[in-house]
Amino acid sequence: MPSKKNQAPTTPAPAADEPDGPPPPEPVPPVQVLYCAVCSYPPEYCEFGSSLTKCKEWIKETHPDLYEKYYSEDALTSKVGTLSLEAQAKLEKEAAKKEAKAEAKADAALKKKLASQVTIKRIERNKRKHVTSIHGLEAFGVDLKKAAKQFSSKFATGASVTKDVQGRDEIVVQGDVSYEIVEMIEAEAGVLKGIPPDKVDVVEEKKKKGGD
């Protein structure tokens, strides 16, 4: 009996080191990674992005300690590290070029947005039956599928997203609803937000007569 008693405390002893045999299952917490709000990269990769100056400003304002870490003088010198000066200069030049390119691209996109128009077209289908097609909503950041769904439930007719002959996306609504759609855009109903009414154009397309 005493021998058994002696054994009894020895067996739980090693288990006490590792509580409950296998260690309690604890999920490893994820590493919290900060992403740059401008280019979405982790800030250490901003220098390779196409908006370095903006990223720099952002990080200087929001995380001055990190700015110190990545862009202070000695950080820059240590960064050069294994690269030769020549290669470094080339890299910087390329980065500047890339940035300028990206800016030009963004400018062009903005211009395009300013120039873009929404065209609402009434197409005669069959003498007194019409369909309405809407072009160019996507330039204003409208989700075409959602917009089509909204039209179909509002007018209780079919509305679908299709591609026209030129391959552009358009919404086709059954029935003549062109003026109602203009009203909806003016009232900014549902997903149709941020479309200036003066950019909306209503046109009519008549079917060509077959006899001519």
Binding site: V28, P30, Q32, V33, Y45, F48, L91
Partner: peptide, 22 residues
Amino acid sequence: VHKYPYILPKVGVDRGAIRFLL
């Protein structure tokens, strides 16, 4: 992977390669 960096074996590239990688 950013959250759990240890789940796969890692390799590293030098600084000159980052540009091409991106």
